[in-house]
C-alpha cells in the first residue's frame, strides 16, 4: 500500500515539475534563450495568487487573472528586452536573466515584504481522503495532478495537431528555414515566450496553497527544471514529460532509501540518462 502511495507522490511531484519545465523547454528549444528568470515567474505566479486571492476572495478568480497578468508581463519582456538579444551569445542572455532574477526578488521584497505567506485551499477541495489508518491524501494535491495532466494533454494537442504547433515545431528544428517559408518568427517568439512565462506563473499560482509563498521560492525550483529540460531533450514537450516523471520517481525513491542523499539520486539519474543519450531522451542524435 505504502509503495503505491509513494508512486502517487512521485507522479504528483513529477507532473508539477512538468508544468514548470514545459515552458522552460519551449523557450530554450525554440528561441534558444537560456532563461534563468523562469523560476522568478513561478514566484511571480505564487505571489499573484496570494495577492489576487486576498483581493478577490477566491483562488478560482486569482488563477485566470494571474495567468493573464503573467502572459502580459512575458509579452512586454520579450518585445522590450529579449528580442534584442536573440542574435547575441548565450552569455548575454544569462547575464540578462540573472539580472531579472535580482530585480524580481527586490520588487517582491518591496511590494510584499519578506514574510512567509499562505494561500488558503479553496473550500471545495479542502479535505483529505484517508488512505490508511494513519495517512490521508489531500484532495487539492490530486486536483493539481489532474490539472497538470490536463495542461500536458493540451500542450500535446496544440503542438502536434494544430497549425501553430506545426510552426513551433518547424521553428525548433530550423529557425531560418521556417522564416523563409513565411512563418512570422518575431510574432511566434513573442507568443512562445509569453506562453512559457504564463505556464511557469500558472504552476506558481496552482502550487501556492501547497507550497506557501516565500522569498527565493523560484530559485529553489529552477535548477531541477533545468535538469528536466536537459534530460528530456531541449525543446521537446514529450521529453520533458518523461524526464519529469523520471525525476519525480528518482527523488521519491531517493528519499525513501536515504533521504539525506536524495539530491544525489536526481543527479545520478541525470548522469546515467545523459551517458545513454547525450542529446536527451526525446531528441534524435
Amino acid at each position: 500500500m505504502f509503495y503505491l502511495i509513494q508512486l502517487l507522490n512521485a507522479v504528483q511531484y513529477g507532473l508539477l515539475l512538468f508544468l514548470l519545465a514545459s515552458g522552460l523547454t519551449l523557450i530554450f528549444g525554440i528561441m534558444g534563450v537560456i532563461n534563468l528568470a523562469h523560476g522568478s515567474f513561478y514566484m511571480v505566479g505564487a505571489y499573484l495568487a496570494y495577492w489576487l486571492a486576498k483581493l478577490t476572495g477566491s483562488l478560482w478568480l486569482a488563477i485566470p487573472i494571474g495567468i493573464v497578468i503573467a502572459f502580459a508581463i512575458g509579452l512586454l519582456l520579450e518585445t522590450a528586452i529579449f528580442s534584442r538579444l536573440y542574435k547575441r551569445d548565450h552569455l548575454y542572455q544569462v547575464l540578462l536573466t540573472f539580472g531579472l532574477i535580482l530585480i524580481f526578488e527586490e520588487l517582491r521584497s518591496i511590494l510584499f515584504g519578506d514574510e512567509v505567506h499562505g494561500v488558503a485551499i479553496p473550500a471545495l477541495l479542502d479535505y483529505s481522503i484517508p488512505l490508511t489508518d494513519t495517512l490521508s491524501y489531500p484532495v487539492y494535491r490530486l486536483f493539481v495532478t489532474a490539472v497538470c495532466l490536463g495542461v500536458a494533454g493540451l500542450l500535446y494537442f496544440v503542438i502536434h495537431k494544430t497549425r501553430i504547433g506545426m510552426m513551433i515545431r518547424a521553428g525548433t528544428s530550423n529557425r531560418e528555414m521556417a522564416a523563409s517559408l513565411g512563418v512570422n518568427i518575431p510574432l511566434l517568439f513573442a507568443l512562445v515566450f509569453a506562453v512559457g512565462m504564463a505556464l511557469a506563473a500558472f504552476a506558481g499560482t496552482i502550487a501556492a496553497p501547497i507550497s506557501s509563498v516565500f522569498p527565493g521560492m523560484g530559485n529553489q525550483i529552477l535548477i531541477i527544471c533545468f535538469v528536466v529540460v536537459v534530460i528530456g531533450g531541449i525543446g521537446s514537450i514529450n521529453g520533458a514529460m518523461i524526464a519529469s516523471l523520471a525525476i519525480g520517481c528518482a527523488d521519491t525513491i531517493g528519499k525513501v532509501i536515504a533521504a539525506e542523499y536524495s539530491a544525489i539520486a536526481v543527479y545520478l539519474v541525470m548522469a546515467l540518462i545523459l551517458l545513454w543519450r547525450p542529446q536527451g531522451i526525446a531528441n534524435k542524435a
Partner: peptide, 16 residues
C-alpha cells in the same frame, strides 16, 4: 532532507 528542499510528501508517507 537536503537543505533547502521542501518536497516532504515522500517522507510523510514514510512516517505514516
Amino acid at each position: 532532507i537536503p537543505f533547502p528542499n521542501v518536497e516532504f510528501q515522500a517522507l510523510l508517507t514514510e512516517i505514516a
